[in-house]
Amino acid sequence: MFKILKYSFFDLIRSRWSYVYFLFYLALGFVLLFLNNDLSKAVITLMNVIIVLVPLIGTIFGVMYFYNSKEFTELLLAQPLKRSSIFLGQYLGVAGSLTMSLVFGLGIPFVLYGLFKSDAIWNFSLLLVTGTFLTLIFTALAFNIALAHENKIKGFGFAVLLWLFLAVIYDGLFLLSLIVFEEYPLDTFSLVATMFNPIDLSRTLILLKLDISALLGYTGAIFKQFFGTNYGLILSLVMLLLWTIFPIFSLIFKAKRKDF
């Protein structure tokens, strides 16, 4: 597995898109710090970008890489390698290089600005941790979709639709259900509904860590009670971990049954 990981990783590192992605975050980091002149505020702005953009990039990159490396995969399949190591290696190669672009692209400007001397370091770390999780989750989901669809256009379509659903439509439905059922107690429902969407989960997690939950009103208070505690934090991270592990297992399961 590590050999495949190595080859996929270096293959991607050499590709132009990794640099573009890295440079984008680098520029974003510098610009935000320059405009906000404050680490904590920059973290908040950054969150809004990361929460939407990281899943999108993970999805698109995952699908694109999978289809583009079809030949490489077929070459590997005839070698004495386990299927699980081939696909896990490729997946970790993609997710790893994306994560690296994210962490270094944002890390460098923040460190230069004096991150280590400020108290925003924990919030910033949490931002990077959730960013990493989102990359892992959405790359794995994208690989699952690509494995299930031989047709590139279909695969791309479903992947983008999935992103759209989790990033936008889910929230809409969530909001709608809150309005429709406003007569009922919705605390547990909204907590659970948040748990079932990795993007919402990450957003809530960061918002509440940033101590701006007052903006969220009554629900915010309940959320604060839940996510603000160590118990909530750990549970959320466990949920994100499950969100990561489940698609990876499904990926291995699917890969073992596919014909090439």
């Binding site: 293959d11 050499r14 590709s15 490396s69 079809k70 030949e71 490489f72 077929e74 070459l75 005839a78």
Partner: peptide, 13 residues
């Protein structure tokens, strides 16, 4: 086993 696939497709880069 040494295998020669039908259509020689390799990672282009």
């Amino acid at each position: 086993i040494n295998y020669l696939p039908q259509i020689a497709t390799f990672p282009g880069n």
